[in-house]
Design a protein around this nucleic acid. Structure first.
Length: 424
DNA sequence: TCTGGGGTCCTAGGACCC
DNA sequence: TCTGGGGTCCTAGGACCC
């Protein structure tokens, strides 16, 4: 009998920081979003202090100071590398797996497991030993139930990090689902939870037993599949190979507001470079892009401007210079003098595989420009080997749009000169 | 002073076609 | 009194995820 597992790292970002800072063990740790804006990760101790997910950092400074909470700026280089290590180990412990997010993977056992719980404990132990990170593992007959089991693994003291929902008998399962609110279900967000509540559906058991036609007509086919998954019917299959991105977005808030067009242009150029690099790394081309700039919506006393404008290309491309040139032209149209901009970004649209892109009827057919392809390859290689900061376009060089990252930890695992120091 | 940055899918409604 | 009946395609917006 087929069995799913969901393994996910406990407080991933906070745990990654803690692994390299043994002095912080047992102490509250939080990680701030880009620009040190809001709180995006908290360890157990920080949660106990009542620090909320998504809360603006500056509103929590009292509790942070009083309790000596360790605060880190987010360091995705580190988290990404630690994630790769975890995923490699997990892949080795199941016949098939799917990396679902930076800190979660589904594992699939097509023939089930005799001792799921002890296997789960072996996974937890191995990840801890090899990476220093704690994980929780939930087993169930569908992805949705495995996710729910994972929630129990992490929150129920008796589960101690591993829980198999598939071994429960019908009465036990009903009692458990009755005790869980629908908001714990994967695919039920705040809006759905509110609307379901109005229909009197509050527990997971009630959702599982709800009228499927009513769910379909009132909430759509996605939630309908979720309900079926709660009944043990597999609707969400394994996706072993992450599909190529259909859109690629790069955007950042600025530490300080920006009014100068050249500085905004520098930010846009930088985001175009990053986005195009992502595009090439999945061997795709883009047909166009949207540029976005906006003022600070949290300052209603300032005059606001949210501007976005799309530029379409005559031919799909993966050439940074082509997109960057047009992007700056679009930005110049979008820009309004005198506004204090807080964020800029670019989104690549109509992303498709380079191997079969559509040619323009009115343009001469040209498969690619070998010189430009070589240039792009060289840029990517240099950036990969020596770091993104070593190769830039001239238009990226205006300063003044940096992020705030005042509590950044070293890139312990990916830079030789930032390796953790060991004292013997 | 200070509020992230990515993504996906689905649906409703309008434009347009014959 | 009764005012066609199907389609497709596109877009904006809403919901969800981490």
């Amino acid at each position: 009998m087929l069995l799913w597992a969901l393994a996910d790292v406990n407080s991933m970002y906070a745990s990654c920081e803690q692994v390299f800072r043994p002095d912080l063990r047992g102490k509250p740790v939080i990680v701030a979003s880009n620009n040190d804006g809001s709180i995006i990760a908290r360890n157990k101790e920080a949660k106990l202090l009542g620090i909320k997910m998504g809360a603006p950092l500056h509103q929590c400074m009292d509790v942070i100071r009083q309790n000596r909470v360790a605060v880190f700026s987010s360091q995705y280089t580190l988290y990404g590398d630690m994630s790769n290590r975890v995923m490699t180990l997990l892949a080795d412990m199941a016949p098939a797996h799917e990396v679902y997010s930076i800190d979660e993977a589904f594992l699939l056992y097509p023939n089930g497991l005799h001792q799921a719980e002890s296997h789960g404990r072996a996974i937890v132990e191995r990840i801890k030993r090899c990476t220093g990170l704690g994980i929780g593992v939930g087993f169930g007959p569908t992805k949705t139930l495995a996710k729910l089991a994972n929630h129990i693994a992490k929150t129920s003291p008796s589960a101690k990090g591993v829980f198999d929902i598939s071994v429960l008998n019908q009465l036990e399962l009903d009692a458990l689902l009755e005790s869980l609110p629908i908001s714990e279900v994967w695919g039920v967000g705040r809006r759905h939870a509110e609307r379901l509540g109005l229909l009197g559906i509050q527990s997971v058991k009630q959702l599982r037993d709800a009228d499927i036609d009513q769910i379909k007509t009132q909430f759509g086919s996605v939630l309908c599949r979720t309900v079926l998954e709660l009944r043990g019917i597999v609707c969400f299959p394994l996706e072993e190979n992450a599909p190529d991105k259909q859109q690629i977005m790069c955007s950042r808030s600025f530490a300080h507001e920006v009014s100068d067009l050249d500085v905004l242009g520098s930010a846009i150029s930088h985001h175009v470079c990053r986005a195009m690099q992502k595009l090439r790394s999945q061997q795709s081309v883009t047909n166009g892009f949207t540029i976005m700039i906006r003022t600070n919506p949290f300052k209603p006393e300032l005059i606001q401007h949210y501007g976005s404008m799309t530029g379409m290309l005559s031919r799909a491309t993966d050439d940074t210079l082509v997109v960057q040139r047009l992007a700056l032209q679009v930005l110049a149209k979008l820009y309004r003098k005198g506004y204090r901009y807080k964020k800029a970004g670019v989104m690549l649209l109509e992303v498709q595989p380079k191997s079969f892109h559509q040619h323009d009827l009115f343009e001469p057919i040209q498969l690619s420009n070998p010189r430009r392809d070589a240039l792009m390859q060289s840029m990517d290689k240099i950036a990969h080997r020596f770091g993104r900061e070593k190769i830039k376009l001239a238009s990226e060089l205006y300063k003044g749009w940096e992020m705030r990252r005042e509590r950044l930890s070293p890139r312990y695992t990916t830079r030789w000169n930032e390796l953790p120091k060991v004292t013997c």
